[in-house]
Design a protein around this nucleic acid. Structure first.
Lengths: 240, 240
DNA sequence: CCAAAAGTGTTCGCCGTACACCCATGA
DNA sequence: TCATGGGTGTACGGCGAACACTTTTGG
């Protein structure tokens, strides 16, 4: 394929066009200590070096946006195999004060517990409760706001919540997660009824006794069943 | 601001990065002859010159994505002041066979009737019923599919349908529009009930007699009232 | 036996759905 | 007067919302 510097073989309508720096930025959500959290890092390049920033990086010549996002997340945090969804292309010419950089934001959901070790390797990475996010560079705060809105929209109609929990989880845990996402309390009985009615959870023969003497049953999300039902026209739906 | 060719004053972390061609492509919907329609044009540059294509164009150096979209639509069709919403950033390296071009797609809704004259000026532009879309270049067919899905999602929860109708419209017209969007028939009584219950339509003292002897009342959408209600936590909702 | 969290059912009101006839009018 | 499209009301069922007590068990 034609590289950046040898443009002579392109048709004039292509070669005469402006070329742009393109970055990806990633809003990474996790769930821990009964709180929804955001991963931020200290920016590693000037200007604003050391300020809090989303994970991000430039898109290489022959790399898809999705691949760039995966690469950047992997490099800066060690995380891989996480839930990723494109959010928005941010194209204001002055959004980066240095020069024009287009940025495509992605939001990501990860299971904190399964990845803590890897994150320790990421110098400067830190989790913030979404109720206490520090000042972020450029338009990153706006990206977070959009991502949260999107997460709240998605969590009603797609089983994305489970991307934030361990494979085995309890119903009280699940409810606390949803309460953290929506910053709102739900009725225990109604919440359980709705979740279980959908028939997507399997109860395991094991209890989590870390929070009570009685213990709470572990459940797991049945992905296969979800695929089947979806193919039959079923829609995940939590009227919160 | 720093131009494309004089990169020497940028920090090394910026100047060493790949630069990309970035385009916008626009899925323009209209409603006419009781059908939902898509606007396509004959591609004006090689390769694939003359093939059916979405309206699109490259993003200039100091131009936001939104501005680029407005400019491109204006230039190719004469249309302005239309409803625009960003859809997706398409970043596969080989999506354009000539060279890598990132494309950000937007979907647009316009009132056909109000703009027919301008469109006549746009050589090669044509409306296609969404049930009979011709073969489109590159990944444009996929963009249309995404845009349709998005329109169907949005039309349930936001009053976007009115962007496709004249200011004055009748309830039979409105219903036909929704039936065209969802390719599904609705019960007349229930449809009217739901729409009118929301209290967003005002009946005018005028009838459209072009389709029946009795005539159908004209209505108009009350934007101001919609803003008020939305501020109070009201959500537009059509359970179709 | 007590504290602390897990688990469970019922009632009520609203809304979505199905469904069939009268109205107005120009030709 | 009749053909054509415009307009209207009701009954039923299901689901979301509100609500309080029992169960388990480690200390």
């Amino acid at each position: 394929m034609i590289s950046n510097t040898s443009q002579r073989s392109l048709p004039a309508e292509y070669s005469s066009q402006a070329r742009h720096l393109v970055a990806v930025d990633c809003i990474i959500f996790g769930f821990d200590d009964d709180e929804l959290k955001l991963l931020a890092i200290r920016r590693q390049i000037a200007p604003n070096r050391g300020d809090w920033s989303l994970i991000g990086g430039f898109v290489n010549q022959e790399e898809s946006l999705h691949d760039a996002t995966v690469r950047v997340i992997k490099k800066l945090t060690g995380l891989r195999r996480i839930y990723l969804s494109q959010l928005y292309a941010h194209g204001e010419p002055d959004r980066d004060p240095v020069t024009r950089v287009l940025s495509v934001s992605y939001y990501a959901l990860i299971r904190c517990q399964a990845h803590n070790q890897e994150l320790i390797d990421a110098a400067g990475a830190r989790w913030f409760s979404i109720t206490q996010i520090p000042e972020l560079i450029f338009d990153h705060q706006q990206m977070v706001t959009m991502a949260l809105a999107e997460l709240r929209k998605e969590a009603r109609v797609k089983p994305v919540g489970f991307e934030l929990l361990p494979q085995k989880f309890t119903l009280p845990q699940l409810q606390i997660l949803y309460e953290a996402i929506y910053q709102k309390q739900f009725d225990k009985r109604n919440f359980r009824k709705r979740i279980l009615q959908m028939g997507l959870l399997e109860r395991l023969d094991e209890k989590d006794k870390s929070n009570s003497r009685k213990g709470a049953w572990y459940y797991q999300f049945n992905r296969e069943r979800y695929r089947q039902l979806t193919a039959d026209g079923f829609y995940f739906n939590l009227p919160l």
